[in-house]
């Protein structure tokens, strides 16, 4: 029993120990390639640096630090993402999709679903975050701050 407990308590060491620095290096390689595609200014108009010089300098620094992490970082890998976090992220992606139809429809659905997902069972609380708050925020920003929200299924009811 003791052994089993000890094993579970040990920090997880998985592929992310190497995947994170390697992922950063791969991203940097891509960014470096992109930077080689920038237009260049003729030498006579050049003011100190070409447009790719500074990004390439920073990319070089990031790669150096990532290589250091690859060989010297001894920190344990984080725990696996919990189901709750995964579902919350799923809701975020769902929000982005619904927001294309109507921003406030997306906000209301996301807020209400998030409250329910996180365990809120009182109807008034879900109603408050899913309906009352988005409506109040819409009229606050539209009326007081004069923000024009993107037209959509619900906002068209107000904008006509």
């Amino acid at each position: 029993m003791q052994d089993a407990a000890d094993t579970t308590d040990q920090p997880r060491r998985d592929i992310s120990r190497y995947a994170v620095p390697l992922g950063i290096i791969a991203f940097c390689a891509w960014a470096y390639w992109l930077s080689t595609q920038f237009d260049r200014v003729p030498p006579i108009l050049k003011r100190g640096m070409q447009p790719e010089d500074f990004p390439q300098l920073v990319i070089g620094l990031i790669i150096m630090l990532s290589v250091w992490l690859l060989f010297r970082d001894t920190s344990a890998a984080p725990e696996r993402l919990t189901k709750m976090v995964q579902m919350t992220m799923g809701l975020l992606i769902g929000f982005l999709l619904v927001a294309e139809i109507d921003l406030f429809l997306g906000l209301g659905l996301f807020a209400g679903s998030l409250a329910a997902l996180w365990g809120e069972r009182r109807f008034w609380a879900v109603f408050l975050v899913g309906l009352i708050t988005p409506i109040a925020v819409f009229f606050l920003f539209d009326g007081v701050f004069e923000v024009r929200f993107p037209r959509g299924l619900l906002t068209n009811l107000w904008y006509g």
């Binding site: 996301f110 807020a111 409250a115 996180w118 975050v129 708050t133 925020v137 923000v147 929200f149």
Partner: peptide
Amino acid sequence: IQVLWPIVFIFSIVGAYA
């Protein structure tokens, strides 16, 4: 936090858009 964070999210998104 089941009530607080959905409200914070609404303000965050509208703030980012505004």
